[in-house]
Design a protein around this nucleic acid. Sequence first.
RNA 1: GCCGCCAUCGUCUAGUCCGGUCUAGGACGCCAGGUUUUCAUCCUGGUAACAGGGGUUCGAAUCCCCUUGGCGGUACCA
Length: 488
Amino acid sequence: MRSGRGVRVRFAPSPTGEPHVGSIWTALFNFLFARQTGGAFVLRLEDTDQKRLVPGAAEKIYQALDWYGLTPDEGPQRGGPFRPYVQSQRRELHQQHARQLVEQGNAYYCFCTTERLEQLRQAQVAAKRAPRYDKHCAAIPLAEVSRRVASGENAVIRINLPLTGTVVHHDIIRRQVTFRYDQLDDSVLLKSDGFPTYHLANVVDDHVMEISHVIRAEEWLPSVPKHLFLHRAFGWEPPQFAHLPLLLGSDRSKLSKRHGATSALSFRDEGYLPEAMRNFLALMGWHPKDDREVRSLEELIRDFRLADVNPSGAIFDRTKLDWLNGVYIRSMDIDEFVRRVEPFWHQARLAQVSNEWRRAALMIVRDRMRRLSEVDDLTAFGFSSVWDEQRRLFDFGTMATRHRTAAQAKGEIDWFMDWLDTFSEPWNATSLKINALAAIAAAGKKNGDVLWPVRVGLTLRPASPDVFDVMQLLGKGETRRRLRTFLT
RNA sequence: GCCGCCAUCGUCUAGUCCGGUCUAGGACGCCAGGUUUUCAUCCUGGUAACAGGGGUUCGAAUCCCCUUGGCGGUACCA
């Protein structure tokens, strides 16, 4: 850790497309670690590859972070003491550092053409050797280098790695990892367009921004020795590293589009709650000591331990996410629920009903909901227009069971309607239930024989909410209208 | 190919660093039962795993080696 300052972590995505859920997962662990240590959570946009930039991608990243509740303490939007937070705007700094490395002999200009590099690679692959740059340009005399650079010849700057020796890396999650220099390639640090590559920009910015812990995905592990080399070449104390496992698809390969929706924001659109997503994501790779898996953000922040993250990759499985989302939906304050489900509701239908009606309908269907987007389907029974339409298509054959014919079922509805005519108590589920059950018992009937046909008549579905809840929601007039119409 | 990481129920995982308390615990899913007018919720119970082989040790899921498998990296992408 650096003197004077505490923990500072960064989330450093490239604005090259839709923010990925795996990316948000990395951001979450950075965020949790920052919050629990009282440190700063920094967003830095790594946009040094001009070819891959996608317009609007940065905004999507901000949006996703906000939606997941991971708003950065410092970043392109909010600013901060280490601005700019957009890497392409730090190009001068990167170029200076690249030149410094050349002066020190830790890097060198390379004038090789892509054709030469391609030939070299092919020859190496054919000889079954690891494809690596052969340091051809490292041998060019300094005077010649200066002349060629000054003349504007196309050049890159490459890292000048030792040919022998090993690097020992201590990872917070993986403990000790050893690399051999003779297996490493002299990668490009500064491209011919003047932009740095990830290796350079990342190391320089992490140091200058006083990042104390680099928490990133496992795919970066192989480049650790290069990053360590660079920090040391500059005479800097490297940050601590923690390499997270990869989020996997059902076939155990890195989670990608072909495994279904992986866009971080698509989960919002599918009706998942950010608090459920956070909780679920936190459970991938990390596990609370007390096995209590449903926990608030505060509890996650309090109990999360970076060193306890499981180093093996985790399959992103929707089944448990759906369950967790349901848990959060059921535990939510009802007014909050009404508010948050609104954007998912069919707007034309919504316009037909009052706020009280909405609330009542949602209370009835809440236990059945796993995603907010299910609201339309779950409450469809409440709308007369939907009922009228479905009534025309209804197959009375489905009313018949082993124990009764469709005609008998209709008879029970008839009986129930007669009873309803005598019902004069307040029209609410409790009162209806008490009185109806008593009447059914008095008539020597079974609850199911009467209530099942009635419920199907009212909702036109074999599975639906409690019949008395439905009647209360529909009101007396609509209940009678539906039953009457149903029988004709 | 080379380098690296990883390896416990179908899935997420606890246990592994500091061997015995592990006839391997929890959660999701699934199955069964209960509540019940259906579904869901809720409650109870069940199902199911230490990749394989060698060591070390009185004793190994835990330590070591090998094999196998999976994944990642191997770009003037990040």
